[in-house]
């Protein structure tokens, strides 16, 4: 990955390994959400052909990432030769680990949790010896307690932890929608100067929420417009990634999504 050139890519979906390799110059990089499966026939060539970005579950950063979890993160970073690591700003299990959701879920934006996230993210970044990009999660359920707005929490988090901002534009679009706000006004408040990677995702209706949610779909024009809006305000931007990671993702969707992202960002690459 060239430091001065915008990289455009997608997530690696092993069931689409052959189509991914055949996609030619549509993809510069692949984000790795899971370690390669033993016996994945495509991975050796994928590793040779593309820049790989570590975007696995490393640990929830309200707790320290240490012991086997830290060793795993180091080992994956080395395997992929990833220029940076990425993790979500999420809280998916209780402090004692007894209850967990196993799916992305945002923390509450309180002072005590900010301190924990800053401390543990900084420690992980230093332990890995690599930049660490952090991706916030949509807030659907807001608790009626005093807490910071997401923008303030993020501004302080990135300022104090030294981490980079991985912004998923569809995530922020959802948060704005759930809060009844204009997505563009919401995005303008975020610390976009810290953004180094943009995720662009499609959305689909969710049967439980009764609202859209991230899905294995082609990003629609509004999300692509917002991604360009962010890119125009992100001087440190290095990568744009089509965020579609699902066993239900079809090759046609991957290729069409990449083509649309290339249309918008190809001139910057």
């Amino acid at each position: 990955m060239d430091a001065g050139r915008l990289s455009i890519g997608a997530f690696y979906n092993p069931h689409l390994g052959e189509a991914t390799l055949a996609a030619g110059d549509l993809l510069d990089h692949l984000a790795m959400a899971d370690p390669p499966r033993a016996g994945d026939p495509w991975f050796p060539r994928v590793k040779e052909r593309f820049t790989l970005l570590l975007h696995d579950y490393l640990g929830q950063l309200s707790e320290p990432v240490e012991g086997p979890a830290l060793e795993r993160a180091r080992s994956l970073l080395a395997l992929y030769r990833s220029p940076w690591a990425a993790e979500h700003l999420q809280r998916v299990h209780t402090t004692d680990g007894g209850r967990f959701v196993d799916y992305v879920f945002p923390p509450i934006y309180t002072e005590d949790l900010l301190g924990d996230y800053v401390r543990n993210a900084r420690a992980l970044r230093e332990a890995l010896g690599a930049p660490l990009a952090i991706e916030p999660i949509p807030t659907y359920l807001r608790l009626p307690v005093p807490q910071m707005e997401e923008a303030e929490f993020l501004r302080r988090f990135f300022g104090e932890s030294g981490c980079d901002f991985l912004i998923d534009v569809a995530h922020e679009w959802l948060t704005a929608r759930f809060a009844g706000r204009s997505p563009r006004a919401f995005l303008e408040e975020l610390p976009l100067e810290a953004v180094t990677e943009i995720h662009v995702a499609g959305t689909v209706p969710d049967p439980e929420l009764g609202e859209p949610w991230i899905g294995a779909a082609v990003p629609d024009p509004e999300i692509l417009d917002l991604a360009e809006f962010v890119a125009d305000r992100a001087p440190r931007l290095r990568a744009v990634t089509f965020d579609a990671f699902s066993t239900s993702l079809r090759a046609e969707t991957l290729l069409e999504g990449m083509a649309r992202i290339r249309e918008r960002f190809g001139r910057r690459a």
Binding site: S62, F100, I108, L113, D116
Partner: peptide
């Protein structure tokens, strides 16, 4: 605090 409340929420 935020942690105990988030634990309860989970």
């Amino acid at each position: 605090n935020g942690r105990t409340l988030h634990d309860a929420l989970l």
